[in-house]
């Protein structure tokens, strides 16, 4: 008698557990589409590359363009800007990085950075501050002519987006 009871209990428990488990899988499966819809949609993804023509940018000029809705600074640096950037000792930088690593080889005058302050996301102002680079009006961070942070609360250098030169005067960002 007792033996039979035990088997019955086990079988019933198994049924309950199986039903519960399958139900849980179903709930998880149902949640997924409602989470997946939050990610960037196909029309946003289709715009994820931007082509920029560099020919109209004069030496010493900074232009702002857009990539994925973010400002991108393109700086046609004069030789003195490059020299200044390369003369700095890495030990003086909060986020040490060589200027050579922030530009494409053979196109050393072109600096392409995401124009968003690494502190809290404001857009820094060009040709301002003490380092011939950018000055962020929100909390006073300053960047040099290589877009590297020199002073202020920002922890990192301005980010370099993925880009490539299609020709000497054309780049594709993204």
């Amino acid at each position: 008698m007792a033996h039979t009871e035990t088997t019955q209990t086990t079988r019933r428990d198994f049924l309950y557990i199986a039903t519960g488990a399958v139900g849980a899988v179903g709930v998880a499966g149902m949640i997924w589409p409602f989470v997946a819809q939050l990610q960037p949609d196909a029309s946003v993804l289709a715009l994820s590359t931007t082509e920029v023509d560099l020919s109209p940018i004069q030496e010493g000029q900074i232009i702002t363009t857009q990539w994925r809705g973010k400002p991108i600074f393109i700086f046609n640096r004069a030789p003195k800007d490059i020299e200044a950037a390369r003369a700095v000792q890495l030990s003086q930088l909060p986020d040490p990085q060589l200027d050579q690593d922030r530009v494409k080889k053979g196109h050393d005058n072109w600096l392409v950075v995401v124009g968003i302050c690494t502190h809290l996301g404001c857009v820094p102002l060009g040709h301002q501050g003490n380092y011939d680079g950018w000055f962020c009006p929100c909390h006073g961070s300053q960047y040099d002519s290589s877009g590297r942070v020199r002073v202020g609360p920002a922890p990192l250098n301005l980010a370099v987006p993925p880009y490539a030169f299609n020709s000497d005067t054309k780049i594709t960002i993204g």
């Binding site: 589409p33 819809q37 949609d41 196909a42 029309s43 946003v44």
Partner: peptide
């Protein structure tokens, strides 16, 4: 969820629904 992708503005609302159907992940299903 649909309201997150929809726009109530007469000149674009029809297109926004098609945007949900075509571009949003699982938009057609929702």
């Amino acid at each position: 969820v649909l309201a997150m992708h929809y726009t109530a503005y007469a000149p674009v609302s029809f297109a926004r629904v098609e945007h949900i159907m075509r571009d949003v992940d699982f938009g057609w299903m929702i």
